[in-house]
Design a binder for these strands. Structure first.
Lengths: 113, 113
DNA sequence: CTTCAATGCATTGGTTTCTTATGTATCTTT
DNA sequence: AAAGATACATAAGAAACCAATGCATTGAAG
């Protein structure tokens, strides 16, 4: 089962920030694979979604980048900036809070009965 | 605190379906107030978002409607159709599953350490 | 040795979904 | 009488994602 794509909307940026927080330094393709692995293929980030998101994070100063060459193949590594780190905490805690609220909404009957 | 609007994306339809499942029969404005109340003002559904969503649910045959007059003021009541009921179960369980996955993603460090 | 899959970057066009703003009208409270 | 709440609705625009495409390198399989 793969989640319908609407669900990813709004959470992608937070997912990426959280992964960077946990792994310090990652490149784009690595992120797609890590998410796929960690979610047992339930979330598959498309490149058309990921790269624009990474570029926005960079424009906003939340990440810094450095190019690295393995032979001739280039990798663009992303690392959280100080602002990126605090923004990550914000976004993660907001999402956690949101999920609690949603859980409450979805379980109304069980909880009130 | 009100959640940043990106978070609502993708969950609105499921929220509406779930409320209709719990309350059997609701009209639009009532839904906005109920969500506001149940989430302690953290989620505020705008009418510009809600009404198009309700119309789509109707077009898709997931809800049926009936107009009712309180004096001259009209209310449009929405009720889940049989397809709507099964669709609701689908969507709610998908969202619950998604939230578990997200929770796992956000807690990686805690869980692996 | 060549072809296909995987790795790695990126952009473009299109759709969905929501926001903001606006419009109309009724009812209630001050 | 006016303002705010109730109640419907639409329209223009932005945001965020998907699907498709493109380019290039590397590794594995035949």
């Amino acid at each position: 089962m793969i989640y319908s794509s609407e669900l990813i909307k709004g959470t992608l940026k937070t997912i990426v920030l959280k992964l960077l927080e946990d792994n310090n330094r990652m490149y784009g393709y690595e992120i797609t694979q890590k998410v796929k692995e960690l979610t047992f293929d339930k979330i598959q980030i498309t490149e058309g979604a990921l790269y624009p998101t990474l570029h926005v994070l960079e424009e906003d100063g939340l990440v810094t980048t450095e190019l690295e060459y393995n032979g001739k193949r280039v990798r663009k590594y992303y690392t959280l900036s100080p602002e990126g780190k605090s923004k990550t905490k914000e976004k993660v805690s907001e999402l956690a809070d949101f999920m609690n609220t949603m859980k409450f909404l979805l379980d109304i009957k069980t909880q009130s009965a």
